[in-house]
């Protein structure tokens, strides 16, 4: 093969996006695709932390919310342009991640899960109770749309391209990171933190750096969400959202950046399909989660590959 498959993907993927942008005429579908993009960013960020560094986080919606609320507060209360608010949103999220990360990432397993869960809950309560700044439980209205000079992103198509361009960038960044020295070090932490430490890897500093990076990805998603929907409320960043992000990562397949894409697609579309079940929606959703995890604990991407390989060897 002249070009390695993992390089071809960088040609195929953008072309799919451009084609989708050209051929999907209905703005409803563009809207769905935009939400998929935002969710992919979330899943990608968490996947770096969970899939590669092996650290559970059940509170990632907090960073998503911090990104969204920071840009909302800065653009509405302080009249900043969204593009000036963007670095602030990312920085605030990174700073919070740094402060929280130090004590929290010392924990492992369920204890880490619970620590992050508690953090997410507290941030959610802050969004709700600090009503002078955040608009409280009713939510924050009047967030301005994005535009860049003459290009306005208020149309569905332009926003779709913007979101997916950012997703593409983040995918490339993640991929470069994973296949670098740092990425190998991360995976060694996933397998055995003690062994990694013995090999001279500063595990704590590495874990914190990944945690911060993943918080930045989530804040970016929050920024895009806030300016797309133009309204945010604490309900969009609660415990259940954190769980949904974890589910995207796990169902899509951990330790695979493309699995995050698939997980986000599935979890965004699933509720749309389940509308048909109306009252049964919750039951079916719960069952799907359980069954996928029982049968394909590696996630669907890996699971489908496994099944394909098995059927190939059987035919032979």
């Amino acid at each position: 093969m002249a070009i390695a498959p993992h390089r071809i993907i960088y040609l195929i993927f953008p072309s799919i996006i451009i084609l989708a942008g050209l051929f999907v005429q209905n703005s409803y579908y563009l809207q769905v695709l935009t939400f998929i993009g935002i969710n992919t960013l979330l899943a990608l960020g968490l996947n770096l932390l969970m899939g590669y560094a092996g650290q559970i986080s059940l509170g990632h919606a907090a960073f998503y919310g911090i990104g969204a609320y920071t840009t909302a507060v800065l653009t509405v209360h302080y009249g900043l342009s969204p593009w000036a608010a963007l670095p602030c949103a990312l920085a605030v999220s990174a700073l919070v991640a740094l402060i929280v990360g130090f004590p929290t990432l010392k924990l492992t397993g369920y204890y880490l899960g619970m620590g992050t869960l508690g953090f997410g809950m507290i941030v959610h309560i802050v969004f709700r109770e600090w009503s002078d700044l955040t608009g409280g439980a009713s939510g924050f209205i009047g967030i301005p749309p994005l535009d860049l000079g003459p290009i306005s992103f208020s149309s569905g198509r332009n926003y779709f391209y913007l979101v997916w361009a950012i997703v593409m960038m983040c995918l490339v960044v993640s991929n470069r990171l994973i296949n670098s020295r740092v990425g190998r070090a991360l995976r060694s932490i996933h397998d055995s933190e003690i062994a990694a430490g013995a090999m001279g890897i500063n595990t704590m500093s590495l874990k914190i750096r990944v945690f911060v990076l993943s918080a930045v990805f989530s804040a970016l998603a929050g920024f895009l969400y806030a300016h797309f929907v133009m309204f945010i409320s604490p309900g969009s960043f609660d415990f259940l959202v954190s769980i949904r992000i974890v589910t995207m990562v796990v169902i899509g397949g951990m330790a695979s950046i493309w699995g995050a894409l698939f997980g986000a697609t599935l979890l965004t579309l699933l509720p749309e399909w389940l509308h048909a079940f109306s009252e049964f929606e919750m039951v079916v959703y719960g069952l799907i989660l359980m069954v996928v995890m029982i049968l394909l604990p590696q996630g669907l991407t890996r699971g489908v590959l496994d099944i394909y390989e098995k059927s190939k060897t059987r035919n032979r």
Partner: peptide, 14 residues
């Protein structure tokens, strides 16, 4: 075979 994971993910998503 993991090299094919990206394609699988994209094919599945699309």
């Amino acid at each position: 075979r993991l090299k094919w994971a990206p394609f699988t993910a994209i094919v599945l998503s699309v």
